[in-house]
Simulated assay, not measured.
Amino acid sequence: MFPDETITRRSVLKTTGGSLLAVGAGGFASADPDDVVRANVGFESEAGRTAALDAADDVVREFAFDAMTVRAPKRAVSALADRPGVRYVERDGTARALSTTWAYDRIDADVTNINGYTGDGADVAIIDTGLPCNNSCLPNVGTGKAFVSCSSGCCASWDDDNGHGTNVAAAIGASESCDCTTGIAPDATLHAVKVLDDYGSGSYSDVAAGIEYTADQGWDVANISLGGSSGSQTLKDACTYAQNNGVLLVGAAGGSGPCTDCVGYPAAYSEVVAVSSTNSNDELSSYSSTGPEIEIAAPGSDITTVDPDGSCITISGTSMATAHASGVAALLMGEGYTNSGARSRMKNTAENIGLSDNESGAGLVDAAAAMGLDSSDD
């Protein structure tokens, strides 16, 4: 469980999952003797089965082929290997969906998800071009509202008639069964706040109205993968309103790079977490805007995601980097963090990848570290 002072907006929804040590594929070397680990035990006699049962704090399952999966202190599990009738003792390894992207793995979202942190209970507003009404990769679409008109053939006023909203939403919350990718927070509820039209364009006042609406719904995270080169007092006021009402605003730095001091709006406002983009080599993406407003970096280059029709597409941009940061924000706020607590936690646990402050802020967002998990052996 996280520090009590961060749990003020909602009660903690889960207390299991994070208490188990994440250990490496090679065994239990990183675990302390009293750490609870998950192990598979094979036996060849009733004596071996009894030994496994006696050692277990909890039996996860028994198999018909003389084996079982148990949770037990490392000390007890290690001792089992020398007991008569025990054939083997091994770490219960992790299998991952092959649809995950390099970015999902790079920020250790696989570690968080396998440990039970999936964004359940978090509400994320996708302030963008809308969301599809029926896309198998996005089964957790909640409500929606449109501040611009949807083009013909829309299933709802907030339907995505451009694709951009769906693209970023999938990085945040695509189902684990999706063929294209898995979202950082696959159980978060995604809400469509349509402020951009089918050309991907919208006014600052529409964006401000969408941010205000998000705050009035009491939602947790606002993903703002859009922006402009100039500011707006109305837009800033909307961001202040949302921040004061408990929303964590996460915004795209922009794609004006290579450049210096060129973060777009609303990401440049102090109320918004400004996110820059990195590639698979932990380098700043060539297009990423930079500046003193950057708070964190996230993967944004060559990201496989989903289009409204369900097809897979690979795209790049600070929009996708923002979505990865928003996914981690959803994990935190789903566990009871406030907007300010989640913001601080993301920065304090970011990984230093050697970029300057203007390029990556606190560093690369790290889902596992943010959730207090050890990914060193993953």
Rank of each mutant, 00 (worst) to 15 (best):
A208K: 09
A274F: 00
A274E: 00
T278G: 03
Y269E: 03
E271C: 13
V193W: 13
S256Y: 11
V275T: 10
N223T: 12
V263N: 03
S286M: 01
S285F: 04
S277C: 12
G231F: 01
Q233K: 11
G228V: 13
Y213C: 14
E271R: 09
A208C: 09
G228W: 13
V263I: 04
Y241M: 14
G228I: 11
A253N: 10
N245K: 15
S285M: 04
C259H: 00
V250F: 06
S201G: 04
Y213V: 15
A215Y: 09
Y269A: 07
V272Q: 07
S288I: 00
P266I: 15
I224Y: 10
V247F: 04
T240S: 14
S288W: 01
G200D: 05
A253F: 04
V247P: 08
S288P: 03
T278E: 03
G246Y: 05
G291R: 01
E283M: 08
S289H: 02
G218R: 02
S280T: 14
L226G: 07
D237N: 08
G228T: 14
W219K: 09
E212D: 14
L196I: 06
V250K: 01
Q233G: 15
T214H: 07
D261T: 10
S289E: 02
T234R: 12
H191F: 11
S270P: 06
A253D: 06
A208W: 06
H191S: 03
E212Y: 11
S232H: 09
G254C: 00
C259K: 01
D206S: 15
Q233P: 13
S232I: 14
I211F: 02
V221W: 03
N223S: 15
G246F: 12
V273L: 02
S232F: 14
L196Y: 06
S276D: 02
G246I: 10
P292V: 13
G251Y: 12
S205Q: 12
V221T: 02
Y265N: 13
G255H: 00
V272F: 05
N279D: 15
G246R: 09
P258R: 08
D198F: 07
E295D: 01
T260F: 03
G200H: 10
Y241D: 11
G255Q: 00
Y199R: 14
D206M: 13
Y265S: 08
G228Q: 10
G251W: 12
G291N: 00
G246A: 09
S286E: 00
S289T: 05
S201C: 05
S256I: 08
G202R: 06
D198E: 11
G291P: 00
G227V: 08
S256W: 12
S280H: 15
Y204K: 13
G200E: 08
